[in-house]
């Protein structure tokens, strides 16, 4: 039982970070905070991959004269390098959109944005009625 909890503590961290990130994405009204949550969520996945790749006592996988040296699996790291780039692109695009939204709506709060869209809709509707 203790092993179940503390023996795999790295997975617990991944899991907790993941849930925090997802919770932020779902619950926060601020568009900026959502992106922060998303970044956290993605980072937790990076950790998950790296946890797989790590071998206790292993070093960087660089060829040396010592044939018996233990080294970590390099593939997850490479994959995560790609995933980090993707994550950066996502975050950058999200931030850029947030900036543009702020410019267009004067707010980055979801509720205020939908309220102002509603106002716009009603204005248009009344114009049609006139």
């Amino acid at each position: 039982m203790i092993d179940q909890i503390f023996g795999v503590w790295n997975y617990w961290i991944v899991f907790i970070l993941m849930m925090i990130g997802l919770y932020i994405v779902i619950s926060k009204k601020s568009l900026l905070k959502k992106i922060v949550g998303l970044a956290l969520f993605q980072t937790s996945v990076f950790l998950l991959y790296i946890t797989f790749g790590k071998i206790a006592g292993g070093t960087a996988p660089i060829l040396t004269d010592n044939v018996n040296e233990i080294y970590s699996n390099p593939l997850p790291h490479v994959l995560i390098l790609t995933a980090i780039v993707v994550g950066v692109a996502t975050t950058a695009l999200g931030l850029a959109l947030t900036v543009r939204i702020n410019k267009a709506y004067g707010s980055i709060n979801e509720n205020e944005i939908s309220a102002s869209d509603l106002v716009e809709y009603h204005k248009k509707y009344h114009e049609v009625k006139k």
Partner: peptide, 13 residues
């Protein structure tokens, strides 16, 4: 913009 943002967040998740 909002549509794109929602697409981004959901798509990324």
């Amino acid at each position: 913009l909002i549509a794109g943002y929602n697409y981004l967040i959901l798509g990324a998740v």
